[in-house]
Amino acid sequence: MHLAYPAVLSALLFCTGLYGVLARRNAILVLMSVELMLNAVNLNLVAFDVWLSRTAEETLHSGQALTLFTIAIAAAEIGIGLAIVLAVHRNRGTADIDKLRDTSERHDPDGTDHDARTAEQSDEAQKAEATA
């Protein structure tokens, strides 16, 4: 098989994921697009590992080992990411990343107000946890 086929497919998948990350508005759809990008990298790693294990006679199988590590790290990432998205949804009532503008340069009054309020809440939560 030509190495160009998996390489081109992984490049196209990566750019599809890039478009999704940039254009999507829901945080969970952004996470899906990140998964697409990680999978494109995995396909690249596997293809180059299969090629090198034949032509260069290397027996380290670094591509496949790194693919397994990437899959495990992606699983951890999706767990943490979903926990963060759920926490944000619980606090703000939305998972829309266009509305989470508390750290943006433009200052709108209700945004800073909301930010201060949530900071206060998290302080209280920390105090409650410390006393418990």
Partner: peptide
């Protein structure tokens, strides 16, 4: 951005690995 990245990546990859063969 995505189309530009795809064009650049596909061009580079095809140019580099046109004759590479996986056994």
């Amino acid at each position: 951005v995505a189309v530009a990245a795809a064009a650049a990546l596909v061009w580079v990859v095809v140019d580099a690995f046109r004759t590479t063969w996986i056994d």
